[in-house]
Design a protein around this nucleic acid. Structure first.
Length: 223
DNA sequence: AACCTGCTCAACCGCGAGCGA
DNA sequence: TTCGCTCGCGGTTGAGCAGGT
């Protein structure tokens, strides 16, 4: 069948956007709203493909974007969400108002990833790198009635399957008394359990109030 | 001052999902 | 059910910049 190109590449600009192009795009979207990216460039008088317009708007021109450095709270939240969701940048971005998936992805790859590596934590598994990976992996499918009941999650409108690691036995020499938050390098986290000595359900960590079962995963949805 | 190296981040690319005909 | 199209996502690239030598 072959893949049709997203646009007629021979007649489109590429590379950095000019001020004039930005202005045209902003003016068009203010007047007509987002949507129909395919036809937008022609309608707005831009020699760009729709994809490029969409990306420029979402990642740079949108008025609700929060520019500037990430706060410690945002750092912490990104780490938690990544440990739960993996590289689902759009879902993670959905929990950080004013941040885009591209921005978070870049920030992860340039800052957080290195920070975790420096602490000896595998940024993929979020476990200490010298630890054997022989962990059972538990799959939670929100399409099952059991999971919905257990986690009080309604999956009716969220077809999201998450794979998270099983509760971790914190008995390695280096981490005998550390909670998961501390092992992630976020000792000041409100989820730090090793200093507070929380008991209850036998889950090693409590991402997003999973332990208490109050998180509505529908709120993870972006749109 | 010139060059090199590493870092940042905007932008591009390819693919899969979703939807309508 | 199949096909074609559009949109959105995640991975990757590369220009520009800063700091070091």
């Amino acid at each position: 069948m072959g893949r049709s190109p997203c646009c007629e590449k021979a007649h489109t600009n590429k590379g950095a956007w000019t001020k004039e192009e930005d202005d045209r795009l902003i003016a068009y979207i203010r007047a007509h709203g987002e949507g129909c990216w395919r036809s937008l460039p022609k309608a707005a008088g831009l020699l760009r493909c729709g994809k490029s317009c969409r990306l420029r708007w979402i990642n740079y021109l949108r008025p609700d974007l929060k520019r500037g450095n990430f706060t410690d709270e945002e750092d912490e939240l990104i780490i938690k969400l990544h440990s739960l969701l993996g590289n689902k940048w759009s879902l993670i971005a959905g929990r950080l108002p004013g941040r885009t998936d591209n921005e978070i992805k870049n920030y992860w790859n340039t800052h957080i990833r290195r920070k975790l590596l420096n602490r000896g934590i595998d940024p993929v598994t979020h476990r200490p790198m010298n630890e054997p990976a022989a962990m059972e992996v538990k799959t939670i499918s929100f399409a099952t009635a059991d999971a919905r009941e257990e986690h009080k999650v309604s999956a009716a409108d969220l077809n999201l399957e998450l794979r998270i690691s099983a509760p971790h036995e914190q008995k390695t020499e280096n981490n005998a008394s550390l909670c998961f938050s501390c092992r992630l390098g976020i000792q000041n986290s409100k989820d730090c359990s090793c200093s507070r000595g929380t008991g209850g359900i036998n889950i090693g960590y409590d991402f997003l109030e999973l332990k208490t079962g109050v998180l509505d995963f529908r709120s993870l949805e972006m749109k």
